[in-house]
């Protein structure tokens, strides 16, 4: 629309990605880890959109749509797993006990 620089958007994407990664690495709650992954996915989407804007190409938004469907599927499965674990007797959703591979 105006003088928005895609380069700035890319910088923001990097910051968001790093923040999301920080969340994935630091949080032990599976739910919060999923949210952090959503942030990282959105950072990637932002990078695509910015690149599309830079080159006046609709492919950026095509890729955004792909990421969108990916995020939807990922959220559905991830949340189903969380519910499953919760129902099976792990109400704490502690990611560090995942290596028990049981109930």
């Amino acid at each position: 629309m105006s003088t928005t620089s895609p380069a700035q958007a890319l910088l923001l994407a990097a910051v968001l990605f790093a923040t999301g990664m920080l969340g994935v690495l630091a949080r032990r709650n599976l739910l919060l880890m999923l949210m952090s992954i959503e942030i990282m996915l959105n950072a990637a989407a932002l990078a695509f959109i910015a690149a599309g804007a830079r080159w006046h190409a609709p492919q950026g938004q095509v890729m955004f749509l792909m990421i969108l469907s990916l995020a939807a599927a990922e959220a559905a499965i991830g949340l189903a797993i969380i519910l499953r674990l919760h129902a099976a007797g792990r109400p704490t959703l502690d990611a560090d006990t995942g290596n028990r591979l049981k109930g």
Partner: peptide, 9 residues
């Protein structure tokens, strides 16, 4: 170790 966060790290 089977620790997801380690793997992610």
């Amino acid at each position: 170790s089977g620790q997801v966060r380690r793997y992610a790290g």
